[in-house]
């Protein structure tokens, strides 16, 4: 009995040692040199592998950062300035200026605003529904509500609101990785400049139909009347294809445009309540 134990211990140890030697030789022989900074950079990156930088994951992005001479164009949307600063320190390179962005859903077509005219039954994917027809409402531009963006988000930052059937972005969680923007087959989601206290003013509609048709399909559609363009003093609003667009880089959040919109298509969020609605409207009218 004891013989068996001794033999097995000896033979297994010999085998184990042999294997270790072989592995060591192979590891030495086939060693590939890798810049040790790649590992360090990768460690500093958030490791979300979201693809927001345009690379397949964090490792390739780290390689790219190490390889590039100028990293001001390379930007991880998820990493905060501190993390990027650390990376810049590791590499000894200059950082680019980074404007924080946030995803904004530009459709406000809840069933209340945009009556359902048909019932969709099929694979629950926006991409499939949009190829089939214009969707459950009459608006061929609006959100289909099947949650492609929700599934694409790796940061739990966008969710379909069950009541409105529309996606809602949690600003604190959004890293502006662009995944939802790519996922949405109707290009409803836009990355806009992040403002103080998450304040935003935007046209929550992308309907390019003529006013009458747009209004018919959705009560809060942009009808392209141009009133907001007139009231804006900063040239931030443009009107194209019956649709107003507010440039988030030019907008100063003066809040003159929301009150003049006849369909309430321009939304203002996270502002303190207006003192008196009437007064705000008056002053806007006076200045224009």
């Amino acid at each position: 009995m004891s013989d068996v134990v001794v033999y097995s211990i000896v033979s297994l140890s010999v085998l184990g040692t042999l294997a270790a030697i072989i592995l060591y030789i192979i590891a030495q022989k086939f060693k590939v040199y890798e810049d040790p900074r790649i590992d360090k950079v990768q460690e500093a990156l958030p490791g979300a592998n979201c693809g927001g930088c345009g690379m397949p994951g964090c490792r390739p992005f780290a390689e790219e950062l190490v390889k590039a001479d100028d990293i001001s164009e390379l930007n991880c949307p998820v990493a905060d300035n501190e993390a990027m600063g650390e990376i810049a320190k590791i590499l000894g390179k200059e950082l680019g200026e980074k404007t924080p962005l946030v995803a904004v859903v530009k459709c406000n077509g809840s069933p209340e605003h945009r009556p359902k005219t048909s019932h969709y039954e099929g694979a629950s994917e926006c991409r499939i529904a949009t190829e089939l027809y214009r969707g459950e409402s009459d608006c061929p531009y609006g959100c289909l509500g099947l949650g492609e963006c929700e599934r694409a988000c790796k940061f739990d930052a966008i969710h379909i609101n069950k009541e409105t059937g529309l996606p809602v972005v949690t600003d604190e969680k959004c890293t502006a990785c662009n995944a939802c923007v790519v996922a949405c087959p109707r290009d409803i989601i836009e990355l806009r400049k992040k403002n103080k206290k998450d304040r935003k003013v935007y046209v929550s509609c992308i309907n390019e139909d003529k006013g009458g048709i747009a209004r018919k399909s959705c009560k809060v559609a942009c009808i392209g009347c141009g009133k907001c363009v007139e009231v804006c003093q900063f040239d931030a609003i443009t009107l194209e294809n019956n649709l107003a667009y507010i440039d988030s880089y030019k907008c100063t959040l003066c809040r003159k445009c929301p009150p003049v919109c006849p369909t309430n298509a321009i939304l203002e969020e996270n502002f303190p309540p207006r003192k008196e609605k009437k007064k705000a409207g008056d002053s806007a009218a006076n200045k224009s």
């Binding site: 099929g122 694979a123 994917e125 991409r127 499939i128 190829e131």
Partner: peptide, 12 residues
């Protein structure tokens, strides 16, 4: 399973 729904998506 909505096989064709997805195949059509793949095709397009």
């Amino acid at each position: 399973l909505p096989l064709l729904d997805y195949i059509r998506l793949g095709k397009s």
